[in-house]
């Protein structure tokens, strides 16, 4: 029997039990795709909150926007001269985060297509394992290519390096 989304018995216990119950359903392929779909969805949403706020700087504070996106290439700028500089581990962390973001969106999209396929073409359920394998193959083929493209710039200097040449950083206010 397929369970209802909101079965009262499941929720009567404490928060921790609900959490465990939430992670445990069905088992097998369905459970893993469901769990990864949920976690990638929440992760993308968290990123979007940050992304919308930093893009708002484009209109409100152009200089702050440029200082902010420079952090993505490992460059701290516009602060005190003792702090300003290029930090390669920072650059690596953001690059790996970027890879994680692309992987999350890609998996969420492919698995989402799989879910929609089940919903609008119920016979697809009979091939659900094949479909999940197809999702995995497409995901990994694209991710290998993406990884090469995203990671390879790490082995050369960042494009923003000239920032370090300036003695006085641009003001944090729009120069309108």
């Amino acid at each position: 029997m397929s369970q209802s989304l909101r079965t009262p018995q499941v929720y009567r216990r404490g928060f921790r039990d609900r959490l465990v119950e939430g992670l445990r359903y069905g088992g097998g392929v369905g459970q893993w795709s469901w769990l990864i779909h949920r976690l990638t969805g929440l992760g993308i949403l968290l990123f979007l909150v940050i992304h919308i706020v930093d893009t708002f700087f484009v209109v409100a504070f152009p200089a702050l926007y440029d200082h902010t996106v420079a952090i993505y290439s490992g460059i701290i700028s516009g602060l005190h001269p003792t702090v300003n500089g290029y930090y390669w581990p920072l650059r690596w962390v953001f690059r790996l985060g970027e890879l994680g973001l692309i992987a999350s969106v890609l998996f969420h999209a492919l698995n989402g297509i799989r879910i929609v396929l089940f919903d609008f073409w119920p016979k697809a359920v009979n091939h659900q394992k094949t479909l999940f394998n197809a999702v995995q193959i497409v995901f990994w083929v694209i991710m290998i290519l993406v990884t090469i493209r995203v990671v390879s710039p790490l082995f050369s200097a960042p494009e923003h390096v000239p920032v370090l040449k300036t003695a006085s950083a641009p003001a944090m206010v729009p120069s309108r």
Binding site: V58, Y72, E98, I102, A109, P153, H160
Partner: peptide, 21 residues
């Protein structure tokens, strides 16, 4: 996915700044 392809694959995060936007 189109947005990610443009900003991360065709271009990359290090070339994105005010002028790019």
């Amino acid at each position: 996915l189109g947005h990610l392809f443009i900003t991360h694959i065709i271009y990359n995060v290090e070339s994105i700044n005010y002028a790019f936007v």
